[in-house]
Amino acid sequence: MLYLSLVVLLPLSALFLRATGSGWHQVWATVTDPRVLAAYRLSFLASLTGALINAVFGLLVAWVLVRYDFPGKPLVDGLVDLPFALPTAVGGIALTTAYASNGWIGKALAAVGIQAAFTPLGIVIALTFIGLPFVVRTVQPVLQDLDAELEEAALTLGASRAQTFFRVILPTLAPAVLTGFALALARALGEYGSVVFISGNMPMKTEIAPLLIMTKLEQFDYAGATAIAAVMLAASFLLLLAINLLQGWAAGVGRRA
């Protein structure tokens, strides 16, 4: 218990003490500054996009891993956890190198006139990378346990394969997909290491909120950094709450009383 308080509670309280200590007016001024707002907006939109991409493709990957067979499947399955195991800085520089205009993928994109590195697109790519395992891993067990009889029942009742997927399978998977989505979103919102290299950190354009905090710290603007952090923290708590609720809902729907 003592350990817990030392390691967790103390730092947390420090943050809030500091934030409120600065006076609300100053906090509000900081938080509503255009640059800060732009950073929030960018962080939120990019994280949302990345999480959405992961929701769709994560579901697809989980489906393919559970239902289909192909050579090297166990290897691929293990590799899905890479973004979770790889240090963020390593992922960050690797992605930047790959998507820079002279990188493997960056070159191909440049040929079509798309620039990835140092643009919001690059940020979305990095955030998709780090959120990848979340949807896949929450959907996989649910898909595995999906009763074959449900699909057979739908078939005997005359449903086509597409109807079975959209009316029976997908609703059953929905809670898991949503949970994975929320987890990916939460992770993406706070992400620093993977993004800081590929974004280029241009204020108002490709500056994400965590970076802004870092910049303010380097300028010794503790009040400003804390204010921004406090807002992000509030958002994280809300998201964490939502995730816990979602997980509770998912368990309830899946229960066969």
Binding site: D147, E149, L150, E152, A153, A154, T156, G158, V168, P171, T172, A174, V253, G254, R256
Partner: peptide
């Protein structure tokens, strides 16, 4: 056009 009733009912829980 067969009606099938499964052993464990296979009702759509949602």
């Amino acid at each position: 056009q067969v009606g099938f009733v499964f052993q464990h009912y296979a009702l759509f829980r949602h």
